[in-house]
Amino acid sequence: MALPSPDRPTTTADPKSPAGVVHSLAYTRYAGARRSPAFAPLVIARYALMAQLRQRGVKVALLLGLVSLAVCAAILGAKWSLPTMAASAGFGELGGAGQLARAVRDGEADVLVWALRAQILPTFLLTLWCGAGAVSADLMAGAFQFHFSRPVSPGGYLAGRVVSASGWALCLSAVTLLVFSVERLAFQSTPLGAARALGLGAVAVLLELSSLAAVALGVSSLTRRKGLAQAMFAAIAFAGWVLCHSLGALLGKEWVKSLDLISCVDGVVAQLNHQSTLHGGAAFVPALAWLGWTAGALALAAWQLSRAEVNRG
């Protein structure tokens, strides 16, 4: 629907008139094509990722991730090459073929587990740096005034922030996963097995990053103090882990250990690898815990953003 235009000075222009021409100096409103507001999250994410890459903390975390990748790739190479050599030589109580089959199966499970383990610290640091302070910094600076005076909704803003909170960690994890899968293929796996490990690994990484990013943004939306938001995020991750594992050990309930932010993803990964120790109703606990953390934190952030004006009042 076209909007009415404001009154403007009119142009009196007749090229054939010998008396001359009067040109209007009025501005011309842009009437060309505009992209849909649905692109806003991508624009917010792209510029945020660009800005993050210029921060020292992000550079250091990425470097740490690359070092970790190199070290873990070397360890995995050594781990995977030994059973292969042993099986080929026919050592051990199992026959060579059986041992090799088990080694292949365990090796594919290793891809998932090690892809998460190798990047747990860099991923945590990147999410802490890029996510846990993101909304706080915008609240403190009043950046919403730039965003929300444009066709950007709080939901679009939040979607952009989720992508930017996990963007660099996702890149790092994706590279790690790819390297481990290729390495796995080079040692023992079949292309199908390596592809399966890669696919499951991608699911695991996405689960981990989405819950971390959601919780980081959730706590970030609670305060304008970036440092406080980062401290709260770190406390939820580590204190939550200690608390759940202590309680689990105390109560003798294994499922309690998979309630915290970090362990819930580990629990789901263990199930993906068919290595979970949880059975019956308890088998659903890690997935439900992940869902609770992610959906709860996103709902909190969305609610806080919808009432951001009150925060600034």
């Binding site: 510029y47 660009m50 800005a51 993050q52 210029r54 921060q55 403190m140 600076a141 009043g142 950046a143 005034q145 730039f146 005076s149």
Partner: peptide, 13 residues
């Protein structure tokens, strides 16, 4: 078009 009063914004860009 809106220019708010704030002075700190998008420092890395």
């Amino acid at each position: 078009g809106y220019a708010p009063e704030i002075e700190v914004f998008f420092e890395e860009l």
